[in-house]
């Protein structure tokens, strides 16, 4: 089956991103296709490469980036939600006149249409949030 995943909470405060990660990994291992993972609301905060969790804890951002690299996942961060919360890629940083970007490898910034498209294309859209 073709799955779309929506992640609506940031890392560490809420379990949503963890659950979404475990679900996505399990779906891939079962041979399903993950069409896209869409990050919305505070979920965009999963995409900053500047997180430095303690050594003995999981690194939620790195975990997503690694899963994306291994399975060629499309991790999409909502541009409007990202702008509000200071998640920038190189182009956005330039466009907004900011002195640096912070997006992590494997993530890309795009519009909400990407979420709707996932809803249309996928057999199931599973939402993880608060």
């Amino acid at each position: 089956m073709k799955f779309g995943i929506m992640v609506n909470e940031g890392p560490y405060t809420h379990e949503a991103s963890d659950t979404a990660y475990h679900f996505t990994k399990a779906a891939l291992e079962a041979g399903h296709e993950i069409f896209r993972v869409f990050f919305y609301h505070d979920g965009v905060n999963n995409a900053t490469r500047y997180t430095v969790p303690p050594q003995d804890d999981r690194n939620i951002q790195v975990r997503w980036s690694e899963l994306a690299e291994k399975h060629n996942l499309d991790l999409v961060v909502c541009i409007a939600a990202a702008q509000r919360r200071g998640i920038l890629d190189e182009n956005e940083a330039k466009r907004q006149g900011k002195d640096g970007d912070n997006i992590a490898p494997g993530f890309r910034i795009s519009g909400l249409g990407q979420l709707i498209e996932a809803g249309i294309q996928c057999d199931r859209l599973v939402v993880f949030g608060d």
Partner: peptide, 16 residues
């Protein structure tokens, strides 16, 4: 988590 995935495929739609 594998069972969670299976449930989403077994049922017709999913609501969180």
């Amino acid at each position: 988590y594998n069972g969670f995935v299976e449930l989403t495929t077994k049922y017709d739609n999913v609501q969180s």
